[in-house]
């Protein structure tokens, strides 16, 4: 049981190998047998896999800090800022992500008449996902910050820590520990949500799998894609579990 995630990493790596081959220009022979079919399917999927991965990574990189900013605004003592952040969060959470992607993708042209190149959909996907996930992360951060007891602020205050020092040294490290389980949830959801990018003609892995399935009249490519999501999430859960364990050096 304990070793399974490690095996998952290997399986994941093994599956990536064909796609790396293809990326390097090798076109494997796909004439014979299950292995050959698998190899060719995965190499056909490969550009989608990399795009999904890229979308996932960039979304995390941008949405996590952006979420902190939104969280600060949400907790601001200026009522206007707080209201704006609340509104932002409620819209981001209350409307479909797919709709948000469409807005980010089409609004610049249809509303502002800005001509955009065809590969804008890659950036639109990253922007759309980042602003959406930032809202969720903001609320997770807020729950983590509010879980830090008031006494911690008071102790820091009496010892002369400034507000920013208190946040950086006392609150933030404790917050991180509180939020790891919900953040893991959110990241896992993100892995699967990347498939929504098809709405703006972003050909990530799942879209590609659908195309292959349609052209071959075979449902198996979809399962191969599903398997990728599953393995990838095993890796996410494994890594996050490790981090959680690392943060467990103290109790409250």
């Amino acid at each position: 049981m304990k070793k399974r995630p490690i095996i998952a990493v290997f399986v994941f790596a093994a599956f990536l190998i064909p796609s790396i081959f293809t990326a390097c220009g090798f076109a494997p022979d796909s004439e014979s047998g299950v292995i050959g079919w698998l190899f060719s399917t995965v190499s056909q999927l490969s550009s989608g896999i990399w795009l999904s991965l890229a979308l996932f990574m960039f979304t995390l990189i941008f949405s996590m800090p952006l979420g902190l900013l939104v969280c600060f605004c949400r907790r601001s003592r200026f009522k206007v800022v707080e209201m704006l952040a609340k509104f932002y969060i409620s819209v981001m959470r209350g409307t479909p992500l797919m709709l948000q992607l469409l807005v980010v993708y089409f609004a610049p042209y249809y509303v502002f008449k800005i001509p955009l190149s065809t590969d804008y959909n890659f950036y639109a996907a990253i922007i759309g996902f980042s602003i959406n996930y930032a809202a969720y992360f903001a609320e997770i951060y807020r729950s983590g910050i509010e879980a830090v007891p008031k006494g911690q602020y008071e102790a820091a205050d009496v010892l002369g820590y400034s507000k920013s020092q208190t946040f950086r040294k006392i609150v933030f490290p404790q917050m991180v520990r509180h939020i790891l389980p919900p953040v893991t949830n959110e990241i896992i959801t993100l892995v699967k949500d990347t498939s929504l990018a098809f709405a703006i003609a972003f050909v990530e892995m799942f879209t590609m799998a659908k195309q292959i399935a349609a052209s071959e009249s075979n449902i198996m490519p979809l399962f191969v894609a599903g398997f990728f999501y599953y393995i990838f999430n095993l890796v996410v859960a494994f890594v996050m579990g490790k981090i959680e364990k690392k943060m467990n050096y103290y109790r409250e």
Binding site: Q152, A155, A156, G160, Y250
Partner: peptide, 20 residues
């Protein structure tokens, strides 16, 4: 006030040590 905060210390009922 920052300077004056150096003049006193406070010990709390529930200690309020930094757990991390």
């Amino acid at each position: 006030i920052k300077k004056i905060k150096n003049y006193f210390g406070l010990v709390f009922q529930n200690f309020n040590l930094f757990p991390h």
